[in-house]
Amino acid sequence: MIRTENLTKFYGEIRAVYRLNMEVPEGTILGFLGPNGAGKTTTMRMLTGYTTPSFGKAEIAGIEIQKEPIKAKRLIGYLPEVPPLYPELKVRSFLEFVGQVKGLRGKELKNRIEEVVEKTGLEKVADRLIRNISKGYRQRVGIAQAILADPKVLILDEPTIGLDPKEIVEIRQLIKSLAGKRTVILSTHILQEVTSICDTIAIINEGRLIEFGKIEEIEKKYGSASLEEIYISAISKEVKA
């Protein structure tokens, strides 16, 4: 479903992501792990077409995002690290805007908005200005816009950051319930989140992919260690140039 080939991004001299090769089959929930500054966000930005790679390519369902950006972007729901919300708009009209651009019309648009509002628990704030709602609600609006058009691929950059414990549990359940036919990539620092939601993990450090595979397989490879131990030993490996 998602395939990258030598995906690379340089910012001047700085190597953010280097020759990243990854193949994520349909229906996978991938936990994307790595220290701060490892290149997780940059990778996600390249997958969603926000940033152009320095070289290499990324494909969504066989469509190369650089060559046919509109076609590829139609398949993606994306929640960036900072939820991209217009504070001057009401929650509902923000979702209307996103839905229209994603090709939803009339009744279908209305129904979908009601559906995601309910799913993300936004009923109470749906007619309020985004400026006036709490951080937890903003994060939910961010998730609501990502899942609005029922995308095949969901890319979530730290979706539970800044939420209270109850909200975290709710959002995790939501993400789990969204799985199934969808392919989800989820970056996070909370390893517990990975074990509870994901079936596959990718660990990157200094822009290189260090580990990639099903959780059970990786656990086997590391002699049934806990995910925490696996993570620490993976990122302390010498990164090859």
């Binding site: 972007k73 993606i76 994306y78 960036p80 991209p84 217009y86 651009v101 816009q145």
Partner: peptide
């Protein structure tokens, strides 16, 4: 500044 460009430029818009 509001980081909404990350939405705008990842929506299916030219």
């Amino acid at each position: 500044r509001q980081h909404t460009d990350e939405l705008l430029f990842t929506l299916p818009l030219t």
